[in-house]
Write a protein that binds this DNA or RNA. Structure first.
Lengths: 338, 338
DNA sequence: CTCAGCAGCTAGAGCGCTCTAGGCCACTCA
DNA sequence: TGAGTGGCCTAGAGCGCTCTAGCTGCTGAG
């Protein structure tokens, strides 16, 4: 790759130097049939020599399609990172490029989506906080949209997510198996999927015929929320097990329990949700429900690609079965199995 | 914004409907002078009516420049998230767009940089793990590059970062003021900037005339590394204060100390570096050295813009003074001030 | 010998924009 | 009266690609 003095080399430059037409270079670069092996070699060598890289913009513009999949995500969210990594891999395997658009405190989801539209993405995957129902529906009517990891409120959008009923069910079954009967749920408040998990918890509670009303404690999506819930649980009387909305929340619970002198899992078992890195640390070893981000990503991309090809199923929702990852924060309740 | 049946509307469509030329619509949309107020209004209304959005790609292609700033970053890194948020704001204020390219376990920095090149970014900000020295130098010769938050090994690249000497100095001064004399540093191993902070710690140790050799413990950039170091410190004998490589590492120390029954700050004071959200949690209240991500971002963007304008200073390194954020993990040593 | 068939190549028309050069029409001023 | 001025607008040539249509020259069948 030799350094160019001026602007980057174009197809034209390569064509001139190799003594062929622009079109032929294009054919070679794209790797489509229509050139002899000899010419192909020669063109490729010339391109290499000039340090040629196709101009994405021009390419997309000319091709009339962008082969671009847009992704909105919250930075600094382990689950999103995981899914995004999977999207990169899956998209590239299908010949698509990925363009990221971050949602932050100062950058609303609407703004993030607009950026994707400006790039003329052919399809979008939404991970982060969602735009309003109406806007989402409009977006989904323009291009194929998959919402990952949370239910969507727009009928035109696809959804790929882990079944909360299954995930929560798995966790509660596990705790019941160990002998727990006093199980509390620290919920996610108004976070994505929190309502579903809450409902799933109530259903599991009923299904197992546990005593009393399902014990749902106000929580939230962050460590702080978990910590607050832990304080409340300790002062109001501990259950024997707690199922948290997500891993961050569970970690907050865990860390606060430690500080309050509550022993996990001896006095109380804790189960998280997400299988994120913070829970995997050696000194936490959080038992958790795993959502396979790579699998979700790959399914989302597949779904988009088939929508673009017009061959997608009518069913919009794709539910994936989660797995329970058993680690060190669950055990039989203190008094042994009743 | 009315829904289009087919492809998105173009300048041409707006022009036809408004009864003016394409060029004039372009003028209005770009907001440059050259149209009467009346026409401007009419065109704007028509554009709105059709739901017109300029095609970024075509725009950039035609303009001959992209007004694009590329950013490579590690997802799920609080410092990077913070800086990225700042970059969005600063870039948009200067009329630049931002394109993100993630570096992940499966996506090497080289790949991330290539993507930026394909987008024909005019300049790049590198946050994540860096490409090799040679590649970085080549990149920086092609376009203005700013490395944020860590020293770069390529003479052609700009660097914007917090002065490690100042940051570490601030932390050690604070501990000395409280009366600490046995201060250890849990380092970052081979992480970005770790060597600088290590050296700064040794220098501060010398400057304060502290007894013995500077006590540097092998650490790393994550919680796990901090936790491991904590175990070692406890078994080898505690200092009265520890300065960690970064907040994640400090949090690992903190959480392991709690689990080992070591009281912070009563038995040992802990200082972090980065001021990331995990340290701000109410039950940790980590004293830390703050790198103002937004400020770094804004300086980086400014530097790029002036490089592009050909008016940048010859000095490539821009050192920012950090601040010490006093919270709850530092106090006088157990025996009081000696 | 003719002619279809085909591999290998090229010309040229876009894709949706920007931007330069220039046209047209008051209006002003010598 | 006519040249000059300035505001508003348009034509048209790209930007770097892709892609269709068509043009070669070489086979091999009829």
């Amino acid at each position: 790759m030799s350094k160019q003095s001026g602007r980057p080399p174009t197809l034209e430059d390569v064509a001139a130097r190799a003594g062929v037409s622009r079109a032929l270079v294009s054919i070679v670069i794209r790797g489509v049939p229509g050139a002899s092996e000899a010419t192909r070699q020669r063109v490729l060598e010339t391109a290499e020599e000039l340090g040629y890289r196709p101009d994405g913009r021009a390419r997309l513009l000319a091709a009339g399609r962008s082969r671009l999949i847009g992704v909105t995500l919250a930075l600094n969210n382990p689950f999103h990172s995981d899914v995004t990594e999977g999207i990169y891999a899956a998209a590239e395997a299908c010949g698509y490029q990925v363009v990221l658009s971050a949602v932050t405190g100062r950058r609303a989801p609407e703004r993030a989506v607009e950026t994707l539209l400006d790039y003329r993405c052919e399809a979008a995957i939404l991970l982060g906080p969602l735009v309003a129902r109406q806007a989402l529906q409009e977006l989904a009517q323009r291009l194929p949209v998959v919402v990952v990891g949370q239910p969507s409120h727009a009928p035109a959008a696809d959804v790929v997510r882990v079944s909360d009923a299954d995930g929560v069910g798995l966790a509660v079954d596990h705790l019941r198996c160990l002998g727990h009967r006093l199980i509390a749920h620290v919920d996610g408040g108004r976070s994505a999927g929190a309502a579903q998990r809450r409902a799933a918890f109530r259903a599991a509670h009923r299904r197992h015929g546990l005593p009393g009303q399902p014990h749902v404690v106000a929580g939230g999506p962050g460590e702080e929320d978990g910590a607050t819930a832990a304080r409340r649980l300790v002062s109001d009387g501990l259950p024997t097990a707690v199922l948290a909305y997500n891993d961050a929340c569970a970690v907050g619970l865990l860390d606060m329990f430690v500080r309050l002198g509550v022993s996990v899992p001896r006095q109380v078992s804790v189960v998280g949700y997400d299988d994120s890195p913070v829970g995997r640390l050696s000194y936490r070893r959080l038992t958790t429900v795993s959502q396979d981000g790579h699998q979700l990503a790959s399914l989302a991309v597949q779904r988009l690609v088939s929508r673009l090809a017009g061959s997608a199923p009518a069913e919009r929702q794709l539910l994936v079965r989660p797995a329970l990852v058993l680690r060190g924060t669950t055990a039989e309740p203190a008094g042994g199995r009743p």
